[in-house]
Design a protein around this nucleic acid. Structure first.
Length: 163
DNA sequence: GCCAACGTTGGC
DNA sequence: GCCAACGTTGGC
């Protein structure tokens, strides 16, 4: 049962939605979050919550697919791994500072929904991702926004295929 | 590659 | 607790 809705960003060159779908059980852990607000949102996530998987730093930026929360937050062990990219010396196994969740790919959108289209849709005005300066890589979305993005993907794909 | 908008750090 | 300096994000 879906409880809450989220949007998570990833740079596709680093990790794309297709990469997630290619994982065993289409499931992977979401490590490397080093922002308190994003971490706190992840700690609110419950199994079955739905996720818009967003590709940032690509042209054009877009929502690529739907995922779901596969496990609730648990300590991000890469935070105390000296060799890891996002090592934080203030995080320890005894006192973890950073957390991660597991997410599972559900389905790829019929067609990616570009940021420009999100911005042009007045129903999505409240989404953080369309607002200037909102860099948060994990953010809550409303159910109606989540459903609107899915609807847009359907509409866009019909337009494309009828040409 | 630029740069605006943020978040974090650390001296005071 | 203030705030300057610095680092990062991410659209363009």
């Amino acid at each position: 049962m879906v409880r809450q809705y989220w949007l998570m960003k990833s740079e596709p060159e680093a990790y794309s939605f297709d990469d997630l779908m290619a994982e065993k059980n289409r499931t992977d852990h979401w490590d490397g979050i080093r922002n308190y607000q994003a971490r706190n949102f992840m700690m609110e996530m419950r199994q079955g919550d739905a996720i818009l998987f967003y590709h940032s730093s690509t042209n054009p930026p877009h929502v690529a697919g739907i995922a779901e929360v596969a496990s609730e937050a648990y300590p991000d062990h890469t935070s105390w791994d000296r060799k890891a990219k996002y090592y934080d010396l203030k995080s320890t196994p005894e006192n973890p500072r950073w957390y991660m969740v597991d997410i599972r790919g559900v389905r790829k959108l019929e067609i990616p929904v570009p940021l420009e289209a999100l911005k042009a849709n007045p129903r999505l005005k409240g989404m953080r991702v369309v607002q200037k300066g909102q860099r948060l890589s994990v953010q809550p979305v409303l159910r109606k926004e989540f459903e609107e993005v899915q609807r847009m993907a359907k509409v866009l794909s019909k337009k494309t295929s009828s040409r």
